[in-house]
């Protein structure tokens, strides 16, 4: 497996959010910290849900950078995390790759919506993303990941993204997507992306799926709803661009409600 070496000159930044039930039907955020390119802001929530925005204070990650985000929703908390803008991966000063690690933890009876804007793999960039999700048996999750390969008309950079979801300690999803120049052969061929420039996933975890999993379903041959083990479902979609990807994912999500 690939290991990315980040350069000593790169930026290391981390953000942490802890959401806790306030005991009166609301959610408080005892920890809300970010730094440099990973600023976090609380925005107006709705009902029991607290909302947080990741605000990119500078563009990035650049080659050599290492970003870490940790979000934990404790029992009974409701948290939605979005981002103010797309994240753009760009090349750094030297050959070093960048890392972006996201760790999400959701306790029983808590709900997390992790719905950042797209990640754009800019030309010449080399970014390695890991998203690791740990859920208690009674946790709820909506996770959205969207990757756009290159800005308009641009060759993409190299992007490797691994997504791991565990429920009650057992792994229900472990997937890695590698694309862009230098990725293993065939990534853009008929089995991989076949020329599509946007690819995305939704992970939806609801305890009731354990008894009644959603039916597998296909949308316009560009997206599929797939029940996983446990109480999880995955939507995988490919589209020509980010806008059409979002529409496809929204349409698929609507069928899961």
């Amino acid at each position: 497996m690939d290991r990315v070496t980040t350069a000593p000159g790169g930026v290391r930044a981390s953000a942490r959010v802890l959401a806790r039930c306030d005991g009166r039907g609301g959610t408080v955020l005892p920890v809300l910290e970010g730094e440099g390119p990973l600023a976090v802001r609380r925005t107006r929530g709705s009902g029991a849900e607290a909302r947080v925005m990741l605000v990119g204070a500078m563009s990035g990650p650049l080659g050599g950078d290492h970003f870490t985000v940790g979000v934990h929703a404790e029992r009974g908390a409701r948290l939605r995390v979005g981002s103010a803008a797309a994240t753009l991966a760009l090349p750094g000063q030297d050959e070093a790759g960048a890392r972006y690690d996201v760790r999400l933890t959701v306790d029983d009876d808590a709900e997390l919506c992790w719905v950042p804007e797209q990640l754009i793999s800019g030309g010449g960039s080399d970014l390695h993303v890991t998203t690791s999700v740990d859920l208690a048996a009674g946790a709820r999750l909506l996770l959205r990941e969207e990757q756009v390969l290159g800005r308009a008309g641009e060759e993409p950079g190299r992007l490797t993204s691994r997504l791991t979801v565990r429920i009650d300690g057992s792994c229900v999803l472990d997937q890695e997507l590698a694309c862009g120049p230098g990725a293993p052969g065939g990534w853009d061929g008929p089995a991989g992306l076949a020329g599509h420039r946007a690819v995305g996933q939704l992970v939806v975890v609801r305890p009731q799926f354990g008894d009644e999993p959603p039916a597998a379903r296909v949308f316009e041959e560009g997206a599929a709803v797939m029940p996983l083990g446990g109480s999880a479902a995955l939507v995988t979609a490919v589209a020509p661009d980010g806008l059409r990807l979002r529409r496809l994912l929204d349409a698929a999500l609507a069928t899961l409600d």
Partner: peptide
Amino acid sequence: GVLPARSAPLLEIGAEAHAA
């Protein structure tokens, strides 16, 4: 845990389209 997890989006989507 050390096993690779490489995936091909259109293999998965295509398999579901085929099954349907």
